[in-house]
Design a protein around this nucleic acid. Structure first.
Lengths: 101, 101
DNA sequence: AGAACATATGAATCCGTGTTCATATGAAAT
DNA sequence: ATTTCATATGAACACGGATTCATATGTTCT
């Protein structure tokens, strides 16, 4: 397919694993394993997702010994989360848009 | 599946048709056919997308005669677009995140 | 009521993303 | 150099959203 930058951008928020990753990093940087443990998912799954998210600059990476430390691009991600949280709270019956199907 | 409100929210931005719809409505409300013509897609395709987007309150609907007039929930959508545009401009090499794959 | 227009809906299919599992790469320590 | 730890990568598969096509619903007008 030929995704433009905007589609790719939003795709990096539009799934549970990626959102879990974002929230796990909200309080500060973590290594891959730390993220995986924190949200209870496999390392490989996390790695694949981290890749796309940092390709799109939603995340920053930094090597520290054997580990890679990932952190949020807070300038973009935090305002984004605030927007969604506000929207969901005010527009979506306090907790859930009607489920698709 | 069991999508939470946040996933659903972002899914409603994360595809070309939906983004096209959003941009077609940026300057003002339109009917279904007007949207379809403006972006060159089938009516049915547009309708399906409009449904999900308004379920999630990204769009407002209003009946006017035979037509249904759709408009942006500007309070949420406009700031969202500004965020992405800024991000893509500053972080993604002026035009494109590295393509997935 | 019937015709014409506008939109929505259902079901089937297509297609792509996300996951999985196995394995490769890389980095530090012994 | 080899072992161990940490992460990335590749390929195959599965699942689910998006599209398509046909048809239903709804609205207005005559």
């Amino acid at each position: 397919m030929k995704c433009n930058a905007y589609e790719i951008f939003f795709m990096n928020f539009a799934n549970k694993t990626k959102l879990d990753i974002i929230y796990s990093l909200r309080e500060g940087p973590l290594s891959v394993l730390e993220i995986a443990q924190k949200i209870g998912e496999e390392q490989s799954k996390i790695s694949h997702n981290l890749r796309k998210m940092s390709e799109c600059r939603l995340l920053n990476v930094e090597q520290r010994g054997k580990q890679r430390i990932y952190s949020l691009n807070r300038e973009t991600v935090i305002p984004m989360l605030e927007l969604v949280e506000k929207h969901v709270k005010t527009c979506c019956c306090a907790g859930g848009c009607s489920k698709l199907k």
